[in-house]
């Protein structure tokens, strides 16, 4: 039983990272109906930019680990958001009026391009974050070993998700995003500047992805230029699992996927871990064709 709960916490930790990345997929999809395959590279970029800023500015030495990390996170998010907006301008905006799948191929090309850019700038070797940024203490909760950093990461991603939720639900621009997601044409007629909405989405989504990258870097310590593929695929799976285009769905999907993965691996087989995760996904989609929280769309009239 102890093993079960320990694995559950392991799953939650991974799942919260999936959820954070999944938000970026789902937001872009909601507004543009585009699967932004280059989003996984926003995550990688976040991890690498974090490392560069961390080592060059030494923020944590000047203003303490907590505030240093917060400032660092904001800087990384800002930079990745800019890359995201640039990506939209170059690779997606010219394709707005063309078939949807054309933009998907452009996204795949962008992903290859960004991944190789990172490789050429930082080299192909693993890069390692400094070790002493965050405290390495494990808490003993009812006999479970839970590293403190893990709790911090869970809190940070929950905070970001909550902030995003409030932003989408309560602010004017958030309302505009929701409107554009439902019907772009109608939103435009209502005087919503859809281009601004899209820009906003490409700022917020990549920023969250970049933050996830930074968290992975800070916690796990080791990053490399191909790390985005794996996380990106899982996060995309999570977004679909929750119902793509649906923000609470992405959070639920991410956490669920993380838990399914770790329990499936622990009780069935590690070698088949990803296959188990995809099998569960397929089974869920057979029962609920639009994901857990996705809107029911009439398939037949």
């Amino acid at each position: 039983m102890e093993q079960f709960f320990q694995q559950l916490t392991n799953g939650l930790a991974v799942g919260s990272i999936y959820a954070l990345i999944a938000l970026g997929y789902t937001m872009v999809y909601g507004v543009l109906k585009l699967i932004n395959f280059a989003h996984s590279d926003m995550f990688t970029l976040g991890a690498y930019l974090g490392l560069t800023l961390l080592t060059s500015l030494a923020l944590t030495d000047h203003i303490g680990p907590l505030w240093g990390t917060v400032v660092l996170a904001l800087m990384v998010m800002g930079l990745v958001a800019m890359v995201g907006a640039l990506l939209d301008r170059v690779a997606y905006r010219p394709l707005r009026e063309s078939p949807r799948l054309s933009a998907v191929v452009s996204a795949l090309g962008a992903s290859i391009f960004l991944q190789n850019t990172v490789m050429l700038i930082y080299g192909a070797r693993y890069r390692v974050y400094p070790h002493d940024i965050l405290p390495r203490v494990a808490l003993d909760v009812f006999g479970l070993q839970i590293p403190l950093v893990r709790i911090l990461i869970l809190c940070a991603s929950l905070t970001m998700m909550a902030m995003l939720y409030i932003f989408i639900q309560r602010t004017r621009i958030g309302t505009a995003i929701r409107a554009a997601a439902i019907d772009q044409g109608a939103a435009r007629l209502m005087g919503i500047d859809v281009n601004r909405v899209i820009l906003m989405v490409f700022l917020v989504g990549p920023a969250l992805g970049g933050a996830a990258g930074l968290m992975v870097g800070l916690y796990y310590g080791q990053i490399n230029f191909t790390m985005g593929w794996g996380y990106g695929l899982k996060a995309f799976t999570a977004a679909i699992l929750g119902g793509i285009g649906n923000i609470p769905g992405a959070m639920l999907g991410g956490v669920l996927l993380g838990v399914v993965e770790s329990l499936g691996a622990a009780y069935l087989s590690f070698a088949w871990k990803d296959a188990i995760a995809f099998c569960v996904l397929i089974l869920i989609l057979i029962v609920r064709p639009t994901g857990l929280l996705g809107e029911r769309v009439a398939e037949k009239v």
Binding site: L233, T237, I240, D274, F278, C279, L285, V297, E299
Partner: peptide, 27 residues
Amino acid sequence: PIIHLRGDYLCIVTIGVGEIVRIALVN
């Protein structure tokens, strides 16, 4: 069982099938 899924849901399912097959081959 999956042919009725909408576009992007079908996409992830086919990715999933591809990965399951690859993992099965590796194992």
